[in-house]
Structure formats: structure tokens, C-alpha cells
């Protein structure tokens, strides 16, 4: 008993305290989504009223085609996640395994460019996509296709960088063996590397998915059509008004939107831990 206390009590105390810290705001979101009024303030820890009005509003008001938004978010985020990992993995492989002139420069450039503050780039992206709209409305400003392209471009740097770390962690011996067998780099990539890297690709895919799911600053410029919006944009209408904000439906909508992500995250947590650290450990 004494030993248990000495060895484990502090572990549990730290864990419990931090868990409370983690849960505190989350609990309050749930409370505020159950209130009838439109504010985000919760005066007490005990719910005084439990009402599903906000949730009902999301599904029944014509102002909120919530299911459609959800579908849009899923489609856009998964398209971006899958494509960017598909494209990014190839580049990461090249950076990690191939020898070529300018590789060092390329990697530095990739790293440096990511440090450029992207906030102002929005204006430039807007102008580019506005012009694309004039000849290809389906991939220009105002279209989901266009937004997907912009996200793909934006996520490229981060994903290549992350994936490179993962690729580095896969033992070189494996593909060297393949090389001896006479496989070309392209064959090595498809036949040896991709199957091996599937778990880490999945992790980057998931992180990319979450990032895209969350984004609203660009999305609100692109997804103007009510039925084409993502959740992050759709819920904006409750909080970005000219004079007033309505937090209730926003909280309810956000909770529903985050449930699937949290579930995926929790069910894949072992996977994610391994994936995240794999990239770092090798450096």
C-alpha cells in the first residue's frame, strides 16, 4: 500500500488534475448547447435547463441544411486528405531516399516557405481563383473544386515535411534490398515503400483531414452557396452577424461535428501516437 502510494499516487494526481483541465471547457460546451438562450456563457456547473432546441433547430430550420454541410465537409476534407497524402508521399519518398542535385536546397526551401505568414496570401489566392473562375467556373472561386485545389496546394508543404520524417524512420535496408534485386525507384516506391508506410500515411491523412475540416477563413470566401457550405462556414452565420451572435446552435453544431473526429481519433490513438513519434525519433 505504502509503496503503491509512493510510486503511483503522484502519477494519478497529475493525470487526474490534467484530465480535469482538459475536460473543463468541453463540459461547458455541452452545457451551453443544451441551453435555450443564445449565449455561450454558462453560469454554473449544474445544468439548469436541458433542452434539445438547438439541436432540433439545426436539423429542422431551412436556414441550416446541416446534414448537407456535414456531407460537404466530409467530401472536401477527405478528398484533400487523400490526395495530398498521395501526392505528398511521393515527394517525401524522393526527398528521403533519392540522391539528386539540389536536394538539400529543396528541403530547406520547403521548410522555409512554410514559415511565411500565410494570412496575407489569402488575397493573392482570391485573385488567382477569381481569374480561374472566368474560364473554369467549376474549379474557380466559389466552387468546392477550387477550394480543394487551394487546400491541396496549402497542405503540400506541411505534409511533405511530416511524411519525410516518417519515411526516414523506415529502415533503409528494405529498399536497398529491393534495389539489389534490380527494382527501379518507382517500383520500390509502389511495391515496397507504400505498403510499409500505410500506417503513417493514414495518420498524416487523418491530421490533414482534421485541419481541413476546421478551416473557415478561406472556406467562407469560397463556399457562398448555402448548400455548398462546410460546417465551419455554415455555423459562421450564427456568430458573424452584423450586430448579434447566436451561440446556442453554433455550440450544438460544433459538438455534433466534432463527435466523429473525436471517435476516429480515440479509436486510432495508438496508431497516432506511434505515427507522430516515428516521425520525430529519427529526426
Amino acid at each position: 500500500m505504502n509503496k503503491w502510494v509512493r510510486e503511483n499516487l503522484w502519477r494519478h494526481s497529475i493525470a487526474i488534475a490534467t484530465c480535469l483541465f482538459s475536460l473543463f471547457p468541453l463540459y461547458l460546451v455541452i452545457l451551453s448547447s443544451l441551453k435555450t438562450s443564445g449565449s455561450l456563457q454558462v453560469g454554473s456547473f449544474i445544468p439548469h435547463e436541458v433542452s434539445l432546441d438547438n439541436f432540433r433547430f439545426l436539423f429542422h430550420s431551412p436556414k441550416t441544411p446541416y446534414v448537407l454541410w456535414f456531407k460537404n465537409s466530409l467530401v472536401i476534407a477527405s478528398t484533400v486528405a487523400l490526395s495530398s497524402v498521395f501526392i505528398g508521399a511521393a515527394s517525401a519518398f524522393a526527398f528521403s531516399r533519392l540522391k539528386f542535385k539540389g536536394k538539400k536546397l529543396g528541403i530547406r526551401l520547403l521548410l522555409l516557405v512554410q514559415m511565411f505568414p500565410a494570412v496575407l496570401a489569402i488575397s493573392a489566392v482570391y485573385v488567382i481563383m477569381e481569374r480561374v473562375y472566368t474560364f473554369a467556373p467549376n474549379i474557380g472561386l466559389g466552387s468546392q473544386g477550387g477550394l480543394i485545389l487551394v487546400y491541396l496546394g496549402g497542405s503540400m508543404g506541411v505534409n511533405i515535411w511530416l511524411l519525410k520524417g516518417f519515411v526516414d524512420s523506415i529502415p533503409v535496408e528494405l529498399d536497398e534490398a529491393a534495389k539489389i534485386d534490380g527494382a527501379s525507384p518507382v517500383q520500390t516506391y509502389w511495391l515496397i515503400f507504400l505498403p510499409l508506410a500505410t500506417p503513417v500515411l493514414a495518420v498524416v491523412c487523418l491530421l490533414s483531414f482534421i485541419g481541413t475540416f476546421n478551416e473557415f477563413i478561406l472556406a467562407r470566401l469560397f463556399l457562398v452557396e448555402m448548400n455548398g457550405r462546410t460546417i465551419a462556414v455554415g455555423l459562421q452565420q450564427f456568430i458573424g452577424g452584423q450586430y448579434a451572435s447566436n451561440w446556442g446552435p453554433f455550440a450544438a453544431g460544433s459538438i455534433l461535428a466534432s463527435i466523429p473526429i473525436v471517435i476516429i481519433f480515440l479509436s486510432l490513438q495508438r496508431f497516432i501516437v506511434n505515427g507522430l513519434t516515428a516521425g520525430s525519433v529519427k529526426g
Binding site: L23, L28, S39, I239, I255, S258, L266, Q269
Partner: peptide, 20 residues
């Protein structure tokens, strides 16, 4: 529980903190 803050959409959690 500990990874919940990481899994939650940050836009929402930041706004919740602001409200708190």
C-alpha cells in the same frame, strides 16, 4: 481524455474559452 483537446476542432474550443 488527455488527447481530447487535440481532437476537438480548435475553432470551437478557443471560442468556448473566450466565453468562459
Amino acid at each position: 481524455i488527455l488527447i481530447l483537446p487535440y481532437a476537438m476542432p480548435s475553432v470551437m474550443s478557443i471560442l468556448i474559452w473566450a466565453g468562459m
